[in-house]
Amino acid sequence: MRSEDFELISGLLKQRSGLILPADKVYLLESRLTPIAHKRGLETLDDLVNEVRLKRKEDLLVEITEAMTTNESFFFRDNKPFDLFKDTVMPQLIESRANQKRIRIWCAAASTGQEPYSLAIILKEMAAKLVGWKVEIVGTDISQQVLDKAKEGMFSQFEVQRGLPIQLLIKYFNQVGDLWQISDDIKTMVTYKMFNLLEPFSSLGSFDVIFCRNVLIYFDQPTKTQVLEKMRKLIPDDGTLFLGAAETVLGITDQFKPVQGQRGLYSTSNATDDLIGKLKAV
């Protein structure tokens, strides 16, 4: 691939999704975009790049952006954040939101649904404590393709064996041929919506907990800062944020701070000592 072509496409990706594609990842462009070229009756990647350069048709740009996202996800990924959600964050919210009886959770890079469904399963397992409560899970992603898969809730044998305890498979999935579909009562707990983290957040409403895991790693530092600072505006001082294992707020924003000893969990910088104490317990 010519360097000016690489720059055209990588510039486009940065602008549309925040993705930083280093020059040594040019093979990723080739392997993921060549099939798009062929599907459109173009012979080579060069032809596709020309098409982008000359016409800039929106549907093609969307397709290229989606194709370059990395959508890997597992149920209960890394375990610990989900244990923390269940054992510290939820009990704390049940106490502090006792009057409103309302909790809103946002999965900001929901991909194919494993993360929001893991949360929905946890909530279902603690349903006895949530009688009369309205708990909403909103899953968003830039890619419509992954959201369609999430909505269908259909997972391969391989996917249901990464992170999902067998007891939960038995309890919450139905076998459909070779695939496993999540049951309707879990599915209906999650609302999916296409949303680009580079856009303004005003349409989303406010949240008590945000899961923003394994997506900031693809962005440059200014973009990470912008996204996190926009998120801070959506949660109250006692709200919480979960990041992926390879992500942090350190050096990126001082509006959130890590909860000591609870890997992956962040409080706002205005959180009280009392709240932090509760998040550290367990």
Binding site: F158, Q161, P165, I166
Partner: peptide, 14 residues
């Protein structure tokens, strides 16, 4: 626990 074949290192580990 229950592993459905085919399996790989990741599934066993998980």
């Amino acid at each position: 626990e229950y592993i459905m074949k085919p399996f790989d290192r990741e599934i066993i580990e998980s």
